[in-house]
Design a protein around this nucleic acid. Structure first.
Lengths: 212, 212
DNA sequence: GTCTATAAATAGATAGAC
DNA sequence: GTCTATCTATTTATAGAC
């Protein structure tokens, strides 16, 4: 009968929630390591052994969380995309669209200089296919693209952005700046602070090399 | 005695020259394949087996010409550098320095769209070390940098290039445009011709995204 | 879910015949 | 110098005990 059952001091709901939190925390640590390695050496040069070593768990345990190296990398890409969306949400949309676009470019460069921006997979990498069939990634990318696209056309309408450029060219240019090797080059020169580097690249991006 | 020696109908000098030509032709074919694969998938994803297959020779034969994968890639990088130097030599230096710089950027983009521009090795790739200790490459890179550097300062002096930018930032920006993923993005969209793509990226590079 | 141990495939590089 | 065959190390991924 029911009266024979012992009193349970730790209810199952909080307990499962705690376990889930632990689970998510562990996965977050994994994704962080992947993200860092992806930024440092790219998908091909990154090994699953390195990831496991950096997280401090056995490689086999990794595969309980993610079923392949591509899955691992895709999770990191999804997180970056979500970070981007969160940043877009944090912006004051009352500002002029050009200012918003500039803030976005600035943010991507900060992320890159922090060593947290995964470099793009080359055109026919196995990661490309995995990303293309990863709904959270594709959805996130589309969402970001639509929001930026709206600001781009708005900035072209208000006359601050060059209206001769197709919006898609502007969008791709901003994406490319997020992984621009110029940042690493200038950082490697040791001549400038991160802030100076970002200012210079923002200037070349929005104002161009020619004198104004 | 000497009178007993047979008459040699094929002198050794032309024969060795012919053999050397064959040798160089073979090596050129190898370097071409490496160059193409390097442009297509990067150093890490390129395999020596692929190179051998593309050239149509056995892998072991490759290693008679080049002692390692890094050597193979370095040879391709050296050739690109020499192509760049040859292009610089072909320019009419009577033109304004800004025009010269624009022509250089245009040329690098043409090479990239032709699938012949090797992508940059990531910061701590094994290729980096190999290149750093490859004198022909380092010398070529320095020569190119010095020539471009002279044009950059000249263009800043004559007021056509933004004088607020450190010349090294301009130089690195031009190098980065040579491997700009925007070209591949736009090409992949299928919306524009190669000439249109180059024109757009040249515009964003020199004129910036903002309206002038 | 974590571990140790190992499978299975592939990489770069070499041996040795011709 | 070119080939076939092989070595050695590494890599992705899994088996199976706990």
């Amino acid at each position: 009968m029911a009266s024979a059952e012992p009193i349970v001091l730790t209810p199952t709901v909080p307990k499962r929630s705690f376990r889930e939190q632990m689970h998510l925390a562990r996965e977050d640590a994994i994704v962080s390591a992947v993200n860092r390695l992806l930024a440092e050496k790219g998908f091909e040069a990154m090994t699953v052994d390195e990831v496991a070593a950096e997280v401090g768990i056995a490689k086999a345990s990794l595969y309980k969380h993610f079923s392949s190296k591509e899955d691992l990398a895709a999770a990191a890409m999804v997180r970056v995309m979500n970070r981007a969306l969160a940043f877009l949400d944090s912006l004051d949309t009352e500002q002029p669209p050009l200012v918003l676009l500039r803030r976005v470019a600035e943010w991507t460069m900060e992320v890159q200089l922090a060593g947290e921006m995964p470099s793009l997979p080359s055109e026919n990498s196995s990661l490309r296919a995995a990303l293309a069939s990863c709904k959270p990634y594709v959805d996130g990318l589309m969402e970001v693209s639509e929001r930026l696209g709206a600001w781009i056309t708005a900035a072209q309408t208000d006359g601050s952005l060059n209206p001769a450029l197709p919006p898609i060219a502007v969008l791709y240019t901003l994406y490319a700046r997020a992984c621009d090797p110029v940042l690493g080059f200038l950082k490697g020169s040791g001549l400038y602070t991160d802030a100076q580097i970002i200012e210079m690249v923002l200037s070349t991006c929005f104002d161009g090399l020619k004198k104004r």
